[in-house]
Structure formats: C-alpha cells, structure tokens
C-alpha cells in the first residue's frame, strides 16, 4: 500500500498549502488605507457619526469621504494619517476601507434590529473596537453561528433558520 500512503501525504500537503495560502490572505493581515484611530475619535463622536446607518438600516456602513469632510474640512492635527485623508478628499477619491467583519452571503444580519430594537452594545459582537488606536489586522472577535444561537436562546429570541438565513 505504499502508493496509497504517498497519495494521502501528497493530498495533505496540497490541501495544507492551499489552506496556508488562504489563511495568509484571509486571516492576519487586513490593511486599511488610513491608520484610523478609533480611540481618538471616540472622544468627539459616537459610533453612528461615521457608521451612519447603525440604528436605521441593516448595514452599518463605512464612512465615505464626504462624511469625513464634514469635520476635516481643513487640517485639525498634524498627523500624517490625516494628511492622507485630506489627500483623498482633495482628489475626490473614494476611501477604500477594507471590511473587517464579513458575513457569509447567505446570512442576513440587521444592525437596526440588534442595536435599536435589541439594545445590544457594539462591543458584544465587535469587541473593544472603539478603544483601538490603530486598525486591527483581523477581527477582534471571531463570531460563529453557535454564538448567535447561544445569544438568541438566552434572550428567548426565535431560532428559526430563516430568522437569519436568507
């Protein structure tokens, strides 16, 4: 049976390589165009100042340059990161924020439902995002379906498949 063993080893290697490749791009290293400081902004703004739709829509939204320009019309600090931002605004380019928390495509999640109606805090799912001084390279909390279910169960909320799956 040596052939079989060789093949199994070969397969493990190939799959391992693929997984390592995925993990490389998938896990550790999400880069943002601007080294945004959440902690600093927390002093002057709420979450929904920039993530505008947290309380009204399913998606929270990432800020577009117009949202930033509302405060950063002219330089407020001498941070090089702010310079980058002003550059975006001046050139009229969209800021290509990378999404940190992604949902699988067949799941429907509504921020409005959980924040406005369910009265959850942001950190229940996003961790201490608001205290970060630079953008994390990976999500602070890795949520799995079990976490959703556990929370729903403890709060006595429906756990029908179609309550979340779409």
């Amino acid at each position: 049976m040596p052939k079989k063993i060789i093949f199994s080893l070969y397969l493990v290697l190939v799959i391992g390589a693929v997984v390592v490749y995925w993990s490389k791009i998938g896990e550790p290293n999400i880069k943002q165009p601007i080294q945004f400081n959440h902690l600093k902004h927390k002093e002057v703004a709420d979450c929904e100042t920039c993530h505008k739709y947290i309380k009204e829509q399913a998606f929270a939204s990432l800020p577009v340059k117009e949202d930033c320009a509302a405060c950063h019309e002219s330089p407020i600090t001498d941070s090089p990161e702010e310079k980058k931002l002003l550059d975006f605004i001046e050139k009229g380019k969209n800021i290509s924020w990378a999404r940190l928390y992604e949902l699988p495509p067949h799941v429907y999640f509504s921020h409005k439902r959980h924040v406005t109606i369910g009265d959850l805090e942001c950190k229940s799912c996003h961790g201490y995002m608001a205290d970060q001084q630079s953008p994390p390279k990976k999500p602070l909390v890795a949520l799995m379906m079990d976490d959703c279910i556990a929370c729903h169960r403890s709060a006595g909320i429906k756990t029908d498949c179609i309550a979340c799956h779409r």
Partner: peptide, 14 residues
C-alpha cells in the same frame, strides 16, 4: 431544509 415554527419551509444554502 427545515420547517420553521411559523410553517415556512426553508432552504439553508450553506
């Protein structure tokens, strides 16, 4: 594929 508590038969693609 399941039948939910309100009678809707669903399909979970994942």
């Amino acid at each position: 594929t399941n039948i939910g508590s309100e009678g809707i038969v669903d399909q979970i693609y994942g």
